[in-house]
Amino acid sequence: MPENLFKINAKEYILPGTRACQGCGLSLAYRYALKALRENTIVTLPACCLCVLHGIYPSTPVMIPALNNSFASTAASASGLVAGLQALNRTDTTVVAIAGDGGTFDMGIQALSGAAERGTDFIYVCYDNEGYMNTGTQRSSATPLGALTTTTPIATKQQHKKDFLKIMEAHDIAYLATASPSYPIDLYDKFVKAKKIKGTRYIHLYIPCPPGWAYPPRDTVKMGRLAVETGIAPLFEIENGKFRFTSRSKSMAERGNRLPVINYLEKQGRFKKMNAEQLHQLQHWVDGKWQEYMRRSQE
């Protein structure tokens, strides 16, 4: 076992047997995130797969205090928790808002932008499985070009994914990072770091989702790795405006061994209707983003 695995908090905050699907990338990521965040944390979450993972009343597998909220309100809820704790002089508790891509890119964007602009002292986590999975794999603005969803069932999604990281960076927040459950130590480190920083911190999790992406549950870790290795899901952090690749993306940037996106796409049923033109466009789009990140990493 690599030495740095030992530094991970051995305590579990999610009991086995959650209501998430087999092979759910979110359960992996959430497990490591909570290990890093530890006890003195309050989570707020909207309607989404995580809400289901948290169980059906009166039982929950999660041992961190959590507040469920309406779909549009996650970051506002975090603002309320922060204000309430502040008013009661309980400022040692970390407030963490966690929502899906739908609850972040789409409906929750107003509340999140407001909370970030106010510099609210909290960690916002978007777990991005690239669609509205809880309601049955509908398209969101995080769904990539060429993907089949239940609301793009024949023609596939015609637009690129919204570059939400740019939107968050434009808020000049204290910390911004991306992470993947396929690179748990990198993910863990970023949460540990975020917990120590004051102000608005945003962590973006790329979450492979077997039923939504149409691949076998056993391949979740592999799918997460391919997302990183093709440059579709670059791992980085931005602190005080300084961009830094991390983990696998860092070595890729050094060695220049980025894989073509087809290696990732061909393993997922959701891309089976993608045509050659879309494939070309997506590769071009990913190349452009990667170049931009490369430039920034060299600044």
Binding site: N69, A72, G84, Q110, G114, E117
Partner: peptide, 24 residues
């Protein structure tokens, strides 16, 4: 008191809901 200058009324009431949940 803490005054949260929210960006809309949906958030205004959400802030109240969550702050009340922690006992304020």
């Amino acid at each position: 008191a803490e005054y949260v200058r929210v960006e809309g009324e949906h958030s205004a009431l959400t802030v109240c809901i969550s702050a009340s949940t922690v006992g304020a």
